[in-house]
Simulated scan of single mutants.
Amino acid sequence: MNHQNNHKKIMIIDDHPLFREGLKAIIERDTRYKVIGEAGTGRQGIKMARELKPDLAVIDISLPDLNGIQVTQEMIDQLPKIKIMIVSMHSKIDYIAEAFQAGALGYVAKDSASDRLLHGIDCVLKGDYFLDSSVSHQVVEKLLQFPVKEAKIADSEYGSLTPREQEVMRLLAEGSTPKEIADKLCISPKTVENHRANIMKKLDIHSTMELVRYAARLGLIDVDLWKE
């Protein structure tokens, strides 16, 4: 097996060379990941992403030209498969909510990047949302205020889930990873993924964030659970 081809390609966009170095060192502690490019401005980052086609871009929200949210939107427009992780000094809720609306899947505060970054990258590359726990409960509260896409939230839809699906749904909405759920329920991660797919289909929801909103509206989860 050629490990070289199995590397996930990661790009860093941040205007502080020292911080880029730090991020690169953290990311490359994990042999599955390779930093293939670094940029100091949003435009340079977008251009480089088009050329290098990374699997994931780690983007600082404060850049000298465009902000990280604009960069996220443009990158996703041009490279629909790319995954975006935002790092930021700001834990301003509006920024974070906007970043997710723009298509980012992950958000890490700069002061906790060293502890949380690799875990976040793991989640985001799988297509899961990752919210740094220091701010995530506030973000969820903010996201709950966004109108849900014409989802007619009714107990009858929730009632159509099997007891095991209801259990998996609650754990997902509380922020557990599929692996944590598998361990807790003594089932395989593959089974958890199957349950998740069935839940999404039955409830006609398409992302973890929608699932969290749905669960919070039904009163199944306490938003405070998203605190550390």
Rank of each mutant, 00 (worst) to 15 (best):
K34E: 14
S114A: 14
F19H: 07
K47G: 11
I26T: 12
G42E: 02
G219L: 13
Y158S: 08
Y158M: 11
D94H: 14
F100E: 01
D30Y: 11
I61Q: 00
I181N: 06
K47T: 12
L143R: 04
M75T: 03
A39S: 11
D94L: 13
T72A: 04
D222N: 12
K152N: 13
N2K: 14
L203D: 02
E165S: 05
E28A: 09
V135A: 09
S133M: 12
I86D: 02
E28V: 07
E21H: 14
I26D: 09
K47N: 13
S207E: 06
F19M: 10
V124I: 09
H3W: 13
K190T: 15
M209Q: 09
A215R: 07
A25L: 14
R164Q: 08
I12D: 04
D204E: 15
D128T: 07
G106D: 00
Q44R: 09
E193G: 12
A39D: 00
L161T: 04
E98V: 01
I86H: 03
L125P: 06
E74L: 06
L161P: 01
Q78F: 09
L218A: 11
V124P: 02
K81E: 12
P17L: 06
N5T: 15
L131V: 08
L79S: 01
D128R: 10
G219M: 13
Q73F: 00
L56C: 02
A154Y: 13
T208W: 10
R29H: 15
L172P: 01
G219W: 13
G127P: 07
V87D: 00
A173D: 03
V192S: 02
E193A: 15
Y33N: 08
L220Q: 10
A215F: 10
V87T: 02
L63M: 07
L18W: 14
Q145K: 12
S91G: 11
A154F: 14
V135W: 03
V140M: 11
R217M: 15
K202E: 02
I86P: 00
S62D: 03
D94I: 13
P17I: 00
I221D: 03
S156D: 15
S207T: 12
H90T: 04
E167H: 08
F130Q: 05
I199D: 02
G45L: 01
E74I: 03
Q73Y: 04
N198T: 09
K142W: 05
K149C: 10
N2E: 14
E210N: 08
A99T: 04
M75F: 05
M75P: 03
R196K: 12
L218Y: 10
D30K: 11
Y95M: 00
S62H: 06
K83E: 07
T162L: 05
Y129W: 12
V148Y: 08
Y107L: 01
I96G: 03
L56F: 02
M11V: 05
Y33F: 14
I61T: 00
I86Q: 00
N67D: 06
A197H: 12
A39Q: 01
A102W: 01
C123R: 12
M209Y: 06
L131S: 05
I61S: 01
K202F: 03
D94Q: 15
S136M: 07
W226I: 05
Q101S: 09
E98N: 03
A182G: 07
A151I: 12
M169H: 04
